[in-house]
Amino acid sequence: TPKEVIDTYDVREVLEGLAAGKAVDNVTAEDISYLKKLMDDMHRCIETNDDEGLERIHMLFHERLYSLSGNKKLYQILMDLRECIKAYTHVGYSFPGRKLEAAKEHAEILEALISRNPKKAEDWARKHIERSKEAYIKELQKSKEY
């Protein structure tokens, strides 16, 4: 239901913010290179309208953040939400302009990791989820399901 989706986004906002903030302490140069490659792939998918690839890369980016948190319980909780996240991302990405906006938000999270700024990483991760929720709601409103 729309209420369940919103509840899930609210939980994700807090948990993914926590994961991103903690990831700052654990991120390596190898992780940064991997995340930069994912960002390049994300932009390529947007340019070529490869939505399936974009959604896959989106999940890989977030899964690496969860892992970098260093918190096994947090990682497992977020991974348990993975199927919901995939479905919600698909709907949210349908909203015009959301794909590019989301890519910019991922870039901000990555920049915060590179600059070793846990507050900025947490804030951008939370903004990303909040904006994803807003896009999801707007898309539902367009289809009159909300």
Rank of each mutant, 00 (worst) to 15 (best):
P2Y: 15
P2F: 15
K3M: 11
E4V: 07
V5Y: 08
V5A: 14
I6T: 04
D7Y: 15
D7T: 13
T8A: 09
V11T: 03
V11N: 05
R12L: 05
R12N: 02
V14P: 05
L15N: 00
E16V: 00
G17A: 07
K22R: 06
A23F: 05
V24N: 09
T28E: 12
T28W: 10
T28M: 09
E30N: 05
I32C: 03
I32A: 04
Y34S: 08
L35P: 02
L35C: 02
K36Q: 11
D41S: 08
M42K: 01
M42C: 03
M42G: 00
H43I: 01
H43V: 04
R44N: 14
R44I: 11
C45F: 12
I46P: 00
E47H: 10
N49C: 08
D51E: 15
E52R: 12
E52G: 08
L54K: 00
E55N: 13
R56K: 14
I57W: 00
H58F: 11
H58I: 06
H58V: 07
L60R: 09
L60E: 13
L60V: 02
F61C: 01
F61G: 00
H62F: 15
L65H: 00
Y66I: 05
S67A: 08
S67G: 10
L68C: 04
L68K: 02
S69I: 00
K72V: 08
K72N: 13
K73W: 13
Y75I: 05
Q76Y: 10
M79W: 10
L81Q: 06
L81K: 04
R82S: 12
R82A: 11
K86Y: 12
Y88R: 00
Y88A: 01
S94M: 13
F95Y: 15
P96Y: 14
A107Q: 10
E108L: 14
I109A: 03
I109V: 13
I109E: 06
E111W: 13
A112G: 12
A112C: 10
A112Y: 08
L113A: 05
S115L: 15
S115P: 07
R116F: 01
N117C: 11
P118D: 09
A121R: 02
A121M: 08
D123C: 00
W124A: 04
R126Y: 02
K127H: 13
H128P: 04
H128Y: 03
E130Y: 03
E130D: 10
E130T: 01
S132N: 11
S132L: 07
S132K: 04
E134H: 02
A135T: 08
K138L: 14
E139I: 05
E139V: 05
L140G: 04
Q141R: 14
K142P: 02
S143N: 10
E145I: 11
